[in-house]
């Protein structure tokens, strides 16, 4: 295997960590929407943290090896529109995920509080779980990542 393929393997591994982590987070997020007991919702939110760790690590790995690939190969330039748009989307995905994650953290803290106080279903928790802004931020972040994958494959303007 030459250096290009090794760089591509690590870049792709990072992409798998991001997309796979997003899928995992989505699964636990949807499962949490279907539960009523705060203690069960807490468990699913804690599982989501594994996914978030994978996403964050994958974001760093994709960026680092993506930059290395652009610097290393002759036929990709920093001025290529798909490279620029991909970098912008990388920041957009992180920003949306970060804001959405902050709101999810407050929902998890409410669920933990309710679990410690009798573990009864709560209308407030249900409303927070279905908060359209939080859902839009999290799913929007995932869509931005899928858009980056599309750019990597089509390379428009290359």
């Amino acid at each position: 295997m030459d250096r290009y393929h090794w760089l591509l393997v690590f870049h792709m591994a990072g992409a798998f960590m991001v997309l796979g982590g997003a899928m995992m987070a989505g699964i636990f997020n949807i499962a949490a929407l279907r539960r009523e007991r705060p203690s069960e919702i807490v468990v699913l939110f804690r599982l989501t943290r594994y996914a978030v760790t994978s996403i964050l690590a994958g974001m760093v790995v994709t960026l680092a090896f993506g930059i290395w690939l652009v610097a290393d190969v002759d036929y990709v330039k920093w001025s290529n529109s798909w490279v620029i748009v991909a970098l912008i989307l990388w920041f957009v995905a992180n920003a949306l995920g970060g804001i959405g994650g902050g709101r999810d953290k407050r929902t998890r803290q409410l669920a933990e509080q309710l679990a410690a106080q009798g573990d009864q279903p709560s209308a407030e928790l249900r409303t927070r779980l279905r908060d359209p802004v939080s859902l839009a931020l999290s799913w929007g972040s995932g869509l931005a990542v899928v858009a980056i994958l599309a750019l990597m494959i089509w390379k428009p303007g290359a």
Partner: peptide
Amino acid sequence: AIIRPDSWNFPLFLHVLGAATVTGATAA
């Protein structure tokens, strides 16, 4: 990757997206 014809891109996109999501869903 850079000289791939456009007609190969959509199936490749579906394949890679499916591969990454099946990996994440299997982990879940």
